[in-house]
Computed example of a mutant assay.
Amino acid sequence: MGETAFTVFSKIGLTNNFSFRPAAVVSDKAVFLLPVTIDFPVESFTDFGESQIIAVPYIGGGAAISTSEGSSVGFLLTGGVDVRLSPEFTATAGVNVGFLDKTDVGLMLGIGYNF
């Protein structure tokens, strides 16, 4: 939602298949993203038959709130994938489409710390 921006994001698991993924995108203005997503965990099995989640594709929607002149609130569509790198770190890639004063599309790439 900005040409080049810094993003702080989070994932709060509500159930095994639903998450709240708030984010703040900061450039010359700030945009707050408040989506709820449906998660589709992809599992693999170890040699010992233990299940482990290796990736979580997701899709969802919610609200986008812009703080630019004449602040606005609009609908948000989001989709992406989280890939677990280790017990501590997860890589994420996502696309956000915000319908504010105009339609904005943003690509988010990052590494998250799991706690």
Score class of each variant (00 low, 15 high):
41 P>A: 02
20 F>P: 04
81 V>Y: 00
78 T>R: 03
95 V>Q: 04
3 E>D: 15
111 I>H: 04
93 A>M: 14
16 N>T: 11
108 M>I: 14
71 S>I: 00
48 F>N: 15
60 G>S: 05
55 A>T: 06
20 F>G: 03
77 L>K: 09
58 Y>G: 05
27 S>D: 10
31 V>G: 03
85 L>A: 06
47 D>F: 11
20 F>A: 02
33 L>H: 09
11 K>Y: 02
22 P>V: 04
48 F>E: 14
30 A>W: 09
29 K>A: 12
104 D>K: 14
19 S>T: 07
113 Y>H: 11
30 A>L: 12
115 F>D: 03
34 L>A: 08
32 F>C: 04
62 G>T: 02
95 V>H: 02
24 A>E: 06
94 G>A: 13
71 S>A: 15
17 N>S: 12
38 I>R: 12
54 I>W: 05
36 V>R: 04
6 F>Q: 09
34 L>E: 04
104 D>W: 08
7 T>L: 12
65 I>R: 05
92 T>L: 15
58 Y>Q: 09
80 G>E: 06
100 L>S: 02
89 F>V: 11
81 V>N: 07
86 S>Y: 00
24 A>I: 11
39 D>Q: 09
10 S>D: 12
102 K>D: 07
97 V>M: 01
97 V>D: 05
15 T>V: 11
49 G>Q: 08
72 S>K: 13
77 L>V: 13
25 V>C: 03
11 K>F: 03
47 D>C: 05
54 I>P: 01
28 D>W: 01
20 F>E: 05
57 P>T: 06
58 Y>C: 02
41 P>N: 03
40 F>Y: 01
50 E>A: 15
30 A>E: 01
69 E>Q: 10
21 R>Y: 03
79 G>S: 10
55 A>M: 14
96 N>P: 09
97 V>G: 06
54 I>Y: 04
76 L>E: 09
107 L>D: 01
52 Q>V: 13
